[in-house]
Design a protein around this nucleic acid. Sequence first.
DNA 1: GATGAAGTTGACCGAAGCGGTTAACAGAGG
DNA 2: CCTCTGTTAACCGCTTCGGTCAACTTCATC
Lengths: 207, 207
Amino acid sequence: MNPKYYSLPKEKQEAILNAGFHVFSQNTYKKSPMSEIANAAGISKALLFHYFHNKKELYLFLWDTCCRITVEEMTRSGAYEQKDLFGSMDYGMQAKLRLMRQYPDIGVFAVRAFYEKDPEVSADIQKSMGQYLNTHAAKKLQNLDPEDFIPGIDLQMMYREMYWASEGCLWEYIQRGSMNVDEMEKDFRKLLEFWKTIYLRKNRDGI
Amino acid sequence: MNPKYYSLPKEKQEAILNAGFHVFSQNTYKKSPMSEIANAAGISKALLFHYFHNKKELYLFLWDTCCRITVEEMTRSGAYEQKDLFGSMDYGMQAKLRLMRQYPDIGVFAVRAFYEKDPEVSADIQKSMGQYLNTHAAKKLQNLDPEDFIPGIDLQMMYREMYWASEGCLWEYIQRGSMNVDEMEKDFRKLLEFWKTIYLRKNRDGI
DNA sequence: GATGAAGTTGACCGAAGCGGTTAACAGAGG
DNA sequence: CCTCTGTTAACCGCTTCGGTCAACTTCATC
């Protein structure tokens, strides 16, 4: 790619990113036209080809950027250092919401790219995945103290259930198209509070 | 449309339905080629145009069929007559699983069609929606007896949470591509059992 | 086995869209 | 005035699109 891309004003860089995320998240790789991306970014197709030699290069750049900023944001959020499960989920949620405010389509783009089957790009996508795979969930689960939760609960099932519910909630917003991140934050907060009331052991011994 | 479609053998009719559901669920309306659908159905493009005069007609026929068989299956399942909440969810789940076994892409198709924005079809889709909107959830919620559940629980929140978790679980399978409905059923069953253990009041008075 | 209706298709059409290129334009600095 | 940088409209060759049509196959009926 052309390094001059980086000397573009930040807003222009982001406009291109978001245009790419948007178009590639709605269509397959092959059926995502460069002209549509250029239009969405507010520049001409020729200029887009000036910064990225071809479609594949833009696509892989988007994928890389997507992975990088996600990891950065999650790390910076402090979610991984939190001892408390719900605190950690809270921080993680805030990080993801911040990302979605800045790049509304990054989530759907990531999913579609991960499962993209076009041989022109699929191999490169999968190759670069190893470094980004999330293994924090398993560790988090092992470090939980069963005494903190209601007696007899299946902690792994609890965790899966909470994960699915967040995904389902997020998915509902995504489907609806242009998403209202503020509304989403409210819903997530409500979920978190609800989980605390049903999962946490309230009268722990000696407290 | 050509009524001779209905005198086709059932397998051929289903093949066309599934081919349509599949292609239209992966791409926008405009970017879903008739040739691809014909291929997936195992017939020639010319024959597909013999049964459906044009693309729009096929699309709206698919949408109509999708709505109709979903309502039929849900009604027939008996989920709406069940008094018990979890029993009703169980029946509903089984109905949906049956649908997904027969028409693997019908779910994603329905979502995409509902939010399709192409002016050639969007108006017709929205117009035919009124009759299919699901109002059973609200009624179900009103008829619940708080005494059946753990004290102090927010029943509406509980319902939303369960709904989201099922959607999240389903969504995980959908993303992964070709879905294993048997695995899915296992997961849903586990969810149902888990919910019973945490939401139901176990020692109800006098029992 | 001739006939005709019904089912099915390969080949085709004009139009549109694709990835990518190029020649030219606009403007700022010297 | 010139030159360098950023930017684009117009273009190219090619593919794909929705839709048509003439021809081929199949098969029941006479």
